[in-house]
């Protein structure tokens, strides 16, 4: 199971709101803390990575934000310029500008151009061995298939030329499970679980990338075992609850009520966890992360999550 961090390129995806960015950041943080040189790339940059690492805002040019951890934000226009510089050796920097702009414009219409730039830049970093591991805070699960399938789509549309050659080696890298993996993040709720199950199927059928792991985020703690639950049920009986309130000397009803809520939430969610486990191929490990009852999300929670991930990976 712990070969997850031995891969070279990890795409992290998930339905909106499940903590995709937080998991990607913690995964990168964990790898860096184990001595790897890591690039963390935020694709649909909302700047959340900087918040989670308490670093200055990230940009296209990567920056070392903590020891061994480099962070960047994807910017297709910048990626295009870099691509043109590297591949065409366009002599005048000034000439790249308008051309890149025109391409960026084309990218919003022509199929796969934007996607291929994103995936291309990431694959390039891997191929050049600038890092031991590249972790991608990728697009949400609704769009990840489009992103991962782009090299294939472009490869089949473009028969000759530079792009054709480049998509050839990109596909080779993306298809190799030892190098590339997809990490799907979800929470134990109905829609995220359903979407993750659908995603697993689509990734298998429509892309060449392998699902490396499913991370279940925000798992609520199990308050009690069966015997203790019986004790709890008894505590909520009117006569016992009254006695408890008398002994404590203030209103204990909300405390009992909150425990009821915690138990119910945990129970309704475990149904979805079972559903997930049944539907996902048994060879794909499920990693569980606890719900964090914290005041805010920052470096402290990133560290906590990285530790939990490490434990789940058997470190």
């Amino acid at each position: 199971m712990n070969d997850l961090l031995d891969k070279k390129l990890l795409f992290v995806t998930g339905k909106g709101g499940v903590g995709k960015t937080s998991v990607a950041t913690s995964l990168a943080f964990l790898a860096a803390s184990r001595g790897q040189r890591v690039l963390l790339c935020e694709v649909d940059g909302k700047g959340d990575v900087a918040g989670l690492l308490e670093s200055p805002p990230t940009a296209f040019k990567e920056r070392e934000v903590s020891p061994g951890l480099f962070a960047m934000t994807m910017d297709t226009e910048e990626a295009m310029k870099e691509y043109l510089r590297l591949n065409l050796r366009v002599p005048f920097a000034g000439r790249i500008g308008p051309v890149a702009k025109a391409f960026d414009f084309l990218a919003s219409a022509a199929p796969g151009v934007r996607e291929i730039l994103v995936v291309g830049k990431l694959c390039y970093e891997v191929r050049e061995a600038h890092y031991d591991l590249v972790v991608v805070d990728a697009t949400a699960s609704g769009h990840i298939v489009g992103l991962l399938a782009a090299p294939q789509a472009v490869n089949s549309l473009v028969k000759v030329g530079l792009i054709r050659n480049q998509t050839d080696w990109m596909l080779e890298m993306l298809t190799d499970p030892a190098q590339t993996g997809l990490v799907a993040v979800c929470t134990p709720e109905e829609m995220p679980v359903t979407e993750t199950i659908e995603l697993a199927g689509r990734v298998r059928n429509e892309t060449t990338v392998n699902l490396a792991s499913v991370v279940v985020n925000r798992v609520l703690p199990e308050l009690f075992g069966t015997q203790e639950e019986e004790v709890f049920e008894t505590l909520t009986r009117p006569d016992v609850a009254a006695e408890l309130e008398l002994l404590v000397g203030s209103d204990t009803a909300p405390v009992l009520e909150a425990a009821r809520l915690a138990v119910t939430l945990r129970r309704t969610r475990s149904v979805h966890l079972d559903r997930l486990r049944e539907a996902i191929d048994p060879s794909v490990p499920l990693l569980y992360l606890p719900y964090l009852f914290t005041r805010s999300h920052g470096l402290r929670t990133t560290r906590q999550t990285a530790t939990s991930l490490g434990e789940e990976l058997g470190y």
């Binding site: 308050l223 009690f224 203790e228 004790v231 709890f232 505590l235 405390v255 009992l256 909150a258």
Partner: peptide, 15 residues
């Protein structure tokens, strides 16, 4: 044990 659990859980949710 149960009292400890439920009070801790309450304080967690309260945060």
């Amino acid at each position: 044990r149960v009292l400890k659990e439920i009070s801790a859980s309450f304080l967690n949710f309260q945060t």
